[in-house]
Simulated scan of single mutants.
Amino acid sequence: MKKIYIPVVVAGALMLTAWGAPKIAAPSELTAPTPIEGSAGKYASPFTSDGVTAGWVTKSMQVKAAGQIGSMAGNYAGQKAMEQVPFVGGFLGKKAGEAMGRGIALKSIGGEAFLRSSTDLSFNSLNDMALFMYVNYSANPEYQKILDATYAIYPEFQTAYMPALQSASVGH
């Protein structure tokens, strides 16, 4: 039986190679959405209108360890609290953990007021924010660190990022 697994895995990998895994267009091939001027949108932009990282991102990168600890503690506490709920406990536990982790990360940078005051652009859509960042700033040598800082404040952005880029890349 074990001998069957290897050929199946190899065949699967070859099919993905032949069909091609989802591809992402180069930033220059895509059009960035226009951000909201000001911080009234649901999501504060990690970049300001003059192209530098927002103050909240810089501060988040400085306290990265605190954010990671907060996220892990929040995830664990949320999962433990929800383990007793049949069927949906794992999902709700993850969501509760993300919220707790976000709260800790947000507090570590100075709170929502600092987040909003340190940027002059925002978005109402995670997809728009992902595409804007990718098109305009993915060549930045600190881009992965900026993404990580953004994930700490907006945990749901981490799961939305790649699908947003893949859907924008369809047909390019």
Score class of each variant (00 low, 15 high):
Lys3Pro: 10
Val8Ala: 12
Met15Asn: 06
Met15Ala: 13
Thr17Ile: 13
Thr17Met: 13
Thr17Cys: 12
Trp19Lys: 12
Gly20Gln: 08
Pro22Phe: 08
Ala25Met: 07
Ala26Asp: 12
Ala32Glu: 01
Ala32Arg: 02
Pro35Glu: 02
Ile36Cys: 04
Glu37Ala: 13
Gly41Thr: 04
Phe47Ile: 01
Thr48Asn: 08
Asp50Arg: 12
Val52Arg: 13
Trp56Leu: 03
Val57Thr: 00
Lys59Leu: 00
Ser60Ile: 01
Ser60Asp: 03
Met61Tyr: 01
Val63Gln: 05
Gln68Trp: 11
Gln68Asp: 14
Gly70Thr: 12
Met72Cys: 07
Tyr76Thr: 15
Gln79Val: 11
Met82Asn: 08
Glu83Leu: 12
Phe87Val: 15
Val88Ser: 11
Gly93Thr: 06
Lys94Tyr: 12
Lys94Ala: 15
Lys95Ile: 08
Ala96Lys: 08
Gly101Met: 06
Arg102Gln: 12
Arg102Ile: 00
Ala105Ser: 14
Leu106Asn: 03
Ser108Val: 04
Ile109Asn: 03
Leu115Arg: 02
Asp120Asn: 15
Asp120Gln: 11
Ser122Gln: 03
Ser122Cys: 05
Phe123His: 09
Asn124Leu: 04
Met129Arg: 01
Met129Ala: 07
Leu131Ser: 03
Phe132Cys: 08
Phe132Gly: 06
Met133Phe: 03
Met133Val: 06
Ser138Asn: 15
Ser138Gln: 11
Ala139Lys: 14
Asn140Trp: 08
Pro141Arg: 13
Lys145Ile: 00
Lys145Thr: 00
Asp148His: 02
Ala149Thr: 08
Tyr154His: 12
Pro155Trp: 01
Gln158Leu: 09
Thr159Glu: 14
Met162Asn: 11
Ala164Gln: 04
Leu165His: 04
Gln166Val: 15
Val170His: 02
